[in-house]
Amino acid sequence: MFARTLDGEIIILSIILGMSIRHALLALLSEGPKYGLQLRQEFESRTGEVWPLNVGQVYTTLQRLERDGLVESEDAGGAGPQNVFTITPTGSDELKKWLRMPPDVVPPPRDELVIKVLVAMRVPGVDLPELLQAHRRHLVQVMQEYTRLKSEITEGEVEVSLVVDSELFRIEAIVRWLDTTDARLKRLPARTASGAPTSAPRVGRSIAGVRR
């Protein structure tokens, strides 16, 4: 998620890793025309030493962008270090379109924690509140770590604050799910000794639903 460079700057790996090289290059070129070598260096400095990028990938991607009319270069077709690249109006449009494209909010096909809790409901002898609390403690400890990072962030690093906030809200949502689960289960009539629900088929269906 985060890494500190040697001079202490916090860089955000998640953004760089989560973004295609294609859109990353268009974003770099939206600041103005750049040499191929410059693009490669900026890419590397923004990812730090942490993510060794295959140099060839930058040039191959530039070639494809040029072929698709999203960038232009002085020396058409030569995606070398000394060639100057400029973003085209089509490239700008593509970048803007990508910025506005709704993120994928459909949940991932499986949520590990939901599955664990549903399974735990059927495993005899599991103390569910204690299990939920163990997960809650772990998540809150991770949040404390992120909040400590947030309290160290300087005003110039607003990007880091935004990413930390996003992580905190995401984990907070999981904690709230644990709290709600805890309260819901507490309200249920007592279960049978084995801990198995009396209406097994319903739980079976919901597990299948989660698996998708």
């Binding site: 890793l17 730090g48 942490v50 400890q141 991770v142």
Partner: peptide, 14 residues
């Protein structure tokens, strides 16, 4: 202080 320091460990997610 027992939270995972991996948040700031280079390469943790690479």
């Amino acid at each position: 202080g027992s939270g995972p320091d991996s948040l700031l460990t280079p390469g943790a997610n690479a």
